[in-house]
Design a protein around this nucleic acid. Sequence first.
DNA 1: GATGAATGAGAGTTCATTCAT
DNA 2: GATGAATGAACTCTCATTCAT
Lengths: 194, 194, 194, 194
Amino acid sequence: MKRNKPKYHQIINAAVVAIAENGYHQAQVSKIAKQAGVADGTIYLYFKNKEDILISLFREKMGSFVEEIQKALAGKSTAAEKLMLLVEHHFTMLAEDRHLAVVTQLELRQSNKELRLKINAVLKEYMQLIDEVLKEGVEKGEFRSSLNVLLARQMIFGTIDETVTTWVMNEQKYDLPALAPEVGNLLLNGFSIR
Amino acid sequence: MKRNKPKYHQIINAAVVAIAENGYHQAQVSKIAKQAGVADGTIYLYFKNKEDILISLFREKMGSFVEEIQKALAGKSTAAEKLMLLVEHHFTMLAEDRHLAVVTQLELRQSNKELRLKINAVLKEYMQLIDEVLKEGVEKGEFRSSLNVLLARQMIFGTIDETVTTWVMNEQKYDLPALAPEVGNLLLNGFSIR
Amino acid sequence: MKRNKPKYHQIINAAVVAIAENGYHQAQVSKIAKQAGVADGTIYLYFKNKEDILISLFREKMGSFVEEIQKALAGKSTAAEKLMLLVEHHFTMLAEDRHLAVVTQLELRQSNKELRLKINAVLKEYMQLIDEVLKEGVEKGEFRSSLNVLLARQMIFGTIDETVTTWVMNEQKYDLPALAPEVGNLLLNGFSIR
Amino acid sequence: MKRNKPKYHQIINAAVVAIAENGYHQAQVSKIAKQAGVADGTIYLYFKNKEDILISLFREKMGSFVEEIQKALAGKSTAAEKLMLLVEHHFTMLAEDRHLAVVTQLELRQSNKELRLKINAVLKEYMQLIDEVLKEGVEKGEFRSSLNVLLARQMIFGTIDETVTTWVMNEQKYDLPALAPEVGNLLLNGFSIR
DNA sequence: GATGAATGAGAGTTCATTCAT
DNA sequence: GATGAATGAACTCTCATTCAT
C-alpha cells in the first residue's frame, strides 16, 4: 500500500507547496520532486501520473477535512449549532494552512474539466455532510419544513467558498475565522422558523 | 477604435462558441479564427494576445449583463424587490445563452490566476451593484442595520454562482430561472428584520 | 496537397541523411529538422508525427523504385530478361544512393512492429511486380509449370535483400551492381526448364 | 562460470517468452525478471546489461541450432542431401519453438545496429556451415565449378530467412516444414550442373 | 487590412541500471 | 547471492505569435 509509505505524503505536501508558490501551471513534476527531495522518477513509483498527484492531494486533504468536521459536530445536539461549527471549522482549517487555501481556492480550479469532475466526486462527501445537517434541522423543527435542502446546501457551500476565495484573493490579510459567527448567522436566518 | 469594427465582436462571439464546444484548453487561437471566419493573424489586429480575447469577452458580456440588470432594477422601490429581480435576471440571462453559461461557469475558471484577477476586476462593477442594493436595504430599514454588507454580498454572489454552476454541471437539465424566487427568499430571510 | 510542396521532400531527404548518419534511434525530430533547415514545428505541418515521416520516406522512395523498374521491364519480351533487369536495377538504385541503402537495409528495420507492418504494405506492390514476372514466365513456358510462385518470389526477394544487406554491412566496399548477372542466373537456374 | 548456473538459462528463457509476448520494445528488464521469477537486480548478477541478455540469448539458441544441424548432416554423403536436410531442420526447429521464431525473425531485428552486428558475428558459424556444404558440392562435382560460394550462401540464407519471416508474419498458420523440399529444390537447381 | 506558413520553447514520463540492506 | 526502491537522462509534439506577401 503506497499510501502508508512516508514518501507518499512527502510528495503530496511538496505538491501543495510547489503549487502554492509557483502556481498550477508552473508546478512542473520536476519542481514537485525537487521540493519533496526525491528524483523525478520516484514520483511515478507512488502516483500514476501528474493528475493522480493532484487528485490524491485533494482526496487526502479533503478527507481529513470532512473527518475533522464530523468529529467536531459529533456531540452537538442542534442543527444550528452544527452549522455554526461547520462554518467555523471550515474557515479555521484553511486559515491554518495558507498554502492549502491558495491551492484549493485558486490553483486547483485551473485544472481541466476532467480533473475537476474527479475533484467534485471527492467533494460529494462534504456535500452529503451538509445535507444531513440540513435534514436534521428540518426534522427537528429547527428549520422551515418547506426548506429546499439542495438549494440550501448550495447557499451554504457557495457562501463559504466565496468568502474563503475572497479572503485568499485579498492575500489573507484579515482574520477569516473571526467572520464565522456572522456568516453562520446569515445562513441560519435564511433557514430558521421565525 | 477596434471595438466598433464588426470583426471585433465576430471574434469574441467565435471565442464563446469555440470555448463552449471545445473546452478552454482545446480552444486554440486557430480554432477561434476558423470559427470567426478570419485568418489566425487577423486576431492579432484586434487583440493584443489570447488573454486579451478572453478578458474582452468577459468584459463585453458582463458589461451588458450589469447594464440589463441595472435597467431592470430601475423603477423598483424596495431593496427586497431589487434583490429578487437581480437573482431572477442573473439566472434568466445565463439560461438564455447556454454557451455563455458553460464558458463563464466552467471553462473560464481554468484560466490562470493572473487572468482570473483581471476577470475579478471586471466583476467589481457587478459587486458594487449588489452592494448598493444592500446598502439601500439597510438605509431604508428593510435589512438589519447590523448587516455586514461585504459578507452579505459574498453570500449573494456565492449562492447565485454555486447554483448556476451546479445547474451547468448537471448539463442544464432543469429549469434554472424557476429556482430564482426560492433562492431570493433564502437570501432575504438572512438579511431581513424579523 | 502537402506532397507537392518543396518542404515535403526536403524533410524526407533530410530524414534519410539524418538516419543514415546517426542511426534510427539517434535521428531525433530536431536533428531531421536541422538537417532540413526548418524549425522542429515545421515538420508537423507536413507530417502527422515522426512515424509518418518514416512511412512517407519509404513510400516515396519505394514508389519511384517500383516505377523505375516497371519502366525498365516495359519493352522486354522474356520473363528471364525481366528478372535479370529487376535484379540489376534493384542493385543499381541502392548502390547509387548509399544513404538510402543504409536506411532501408539496416536502420528502418529497427522500427517497431507496427511501423514495419505499414512498410510491408508498401512493399506489397514490389512483391506483386515480382509475382507477375514469375507468372508470365510460367505461362510462356520459360519456367517450370510446377513452380510455386509464392516460394519463388520469397527466394528472389530474400536473395536480393540478403545480398544488399551483406554489401551494406561490409560498408559497401565492393561493386554491388557487378554481382547482378550472377545473382540473376542463380535464381533463373532454379526456375528454368532444363 | 555464470553460464552453468540454473538462473542463467532461466533468465534467457524468460527473455524469449517476454519478448515474444510483449514485443522487443515492451520487454523491459523488469518484465524479464518477473517472468524469470527473480528480482530486477539479480539479472545484473548474470548479465552485464540488457544487450548482453539478448546476445547471450541468440548465442545460446543459435549454438544449439548449429550443433543440431551439424549432427543431422554428419552421416550424409552428398552436398545436395545436406542442403536439403539443412533447410528442413532450419524450418522444423523454428516451427517447433514458435516463441523463438517470433523473437529471431521479428523482434530481435528491432535492436540497434550495434547489437545486430554482434548477432551477425554469432551467425557467422552458421554461415560457415553453409559455405562448407557448398564447397563440398563444388569439390565433389555436384555443383557448378563456377559457383560463387559467397553469393550462393547469401541466396540460401536469404531464401530460408525470407520464407520463415513470411511464415511468422502470416501468424504461422501454414505448415512451414512441408515447404522444405520445394525450397531445397529451388536452391539446388540454381547450383547444380545440368 | 488580411493572410497563413513558419517558428521554437517547453514538460510529462519511461526504464536500464545501481546499491544499501 | 539476492533484493527492489530509487535514480535521472532523454525526446516528441503543441500552439501562441510573427512577418513577408
